[in-house]
């Protein structure tokens, strides 16, 4: 074992431990803000793992997009819905948690058996390409040209839609009053909610 491999193994161990610990923190912490910051930790350690996998460009993209955009967005959302909310305790919730944990451990056992049992046909010499950037760029403009272009439509629509849904828009009172509909129907479904319908009986609440 030469020095480079030793360093790789050690840094892999550290990054993996960091990532698992942070990911457990994300799902287990009570306070949502801690979870959000730990999520950043997960993303950063994954980016470190990408560097171990000879992927410099994707590691940078991971930091820029996940930490820089997604995580910040999540933090903003947490601040915008900033209410100390104490969830009403539900009895028997720990049973559900325990059952879920059991299922997840089972799933992990299944997946790891699969990983270890499958004979992956490894490429014999792993040589890092001299520049991943050029290879990725070539892919974007050859065999992945169509998904690349479609992603632009996807991002455009996600942007427009997110703005429409998150925007706090005022309801034009004059217009709504002049038309023949009552004010509260604006931005709503035309169907009445079920509680208001006269024929609503207990029969549609099964159990």
């Amino acid at each position: 074992m030469n020095l480079a491999e030793g360093v790789q193994i050690v840094s892999f161990g550290i990054l993996a431990a960091l990532m698992i610990a942070a990911a457990l923190g994300v799902v287990l912490f009570e306070k949502i803000v801690y979870s959000a910051f730990l999520l950043g930790g997960v993303f950063i350690s994954i980016s470190g793992l990408y560097i171990l996998l000879n992927a410099d460009f994707v590691a940078a993209a991971q930091i820029l997009i996940y930490v820089g955009a997604v995580n910040v967005l999540i933090l903003f959302a947490i601040m915008l819905v900033n209410k100390e909310e104490v969830f009403k305790p539900i009895s028997g919730r720990w049973i559900r948690k325990a059952a879920t944990a059991l299922v997840c451990v089972g799933l992990f056992a299944l997946l790891s058996t699969m990983v270890l049992a499958t004979p992956w046909n490894l490429a014999a010499p792993i040589t890092a390409p001299e520049s991943t950037l050029i290879l990725i760029g070539k892919h974007f403009f050859s065999d992945y040209l169509l998904p690349f272009e479609l992603a632009s439509v996807l991002l455009l629509m996600a942007m427009i839609g997110a703005i429409i849904i998150a925007r706090r828009d005022f309801i034009p009172d004059i217009e709504a009053a002049s038309s023949d509909q009552p004010l509260q129907t604006v931005w709503r479904l035309p169907e009445r909610p079920r509680e208001l319908t006269p024929t609503q009986g207990s029969s549609n609440q099964r159990k």
Binding site: M157, G161, A162, I165, V186
Partner: peptide, 11 residues
């Protein structure tokens, strides 16, 4: 996005 388009309606 389409599903949530009538955004004033809790349903």
């Amino acid at each position: 996005l389409l599903t949530g388009y009538t955004k004033r309606d809790p349903r």
